[in-house]
Design a protein around this nucleic acid. Structure first.
Lengths: 75, 75
DNA sequence: CCACATTTGTCCGTATGTATC
DNA sequence: AGATACATACGGACAAATGTG
């Protein structure tokens, strides 16, 4: 049984918060540094995870401001 | 006018080959190292690009073997 | 089975750029 | 000007899977 990669843990964790409604459209995520600390991974790994979530349309990064949950388009 | 990031050039380049039919379902892509050389970027940047294409369902990596174009599901 | 080379996968640290506050 | 925060890019180190001999 292969172990779950760290970046998948982050992807799943953040996705779970969104799906559970603990993070709603427009909400700001913790910063890279905070997420890295929470999951005990490097900032690089956090970025990998967030890039995937961004590609999936769940979140959107805004330079200088933060990373935000996208509005649920229910599509 | 912001300049196009390197990884986007790779994403667009490979996507173009697939869309144009020069790379068909089941075909193997060049290795990381070869793509890095072709686009004059680092292997890390190639990996970033291929991760995106994988997330989009265009390609699929197989450890020890290579990266392959997914069968077009026409969906 | 073992050794080796090849290739993709994961993870880290760092540097620099860009945008916002 | 400075602090904060995301974005891009690189190099290195290992791990894991595959194929060959």
């Amino acid at each position: 049984m292969p172990r779950t990669p760290d970046y998948v843990r982050v992807v799943d964790g953040v996705t779970g918060l969104i799906k559970a409604g603990e993070l709603k459209g427009g909400d700001r995520l913790p910063t890279y540094a905070e997420l890295a600390k929470q999951y005990e991974v490097s900032v690089t790994t956090v970025q990998t995870a967030l890039r995937i979530l961004s590609e999936r349309g769940l979140i959107e990064g805004q330079q200088g401001k933060g990373v935000f949950v996208c509005d649920d388009k229910r599509g």
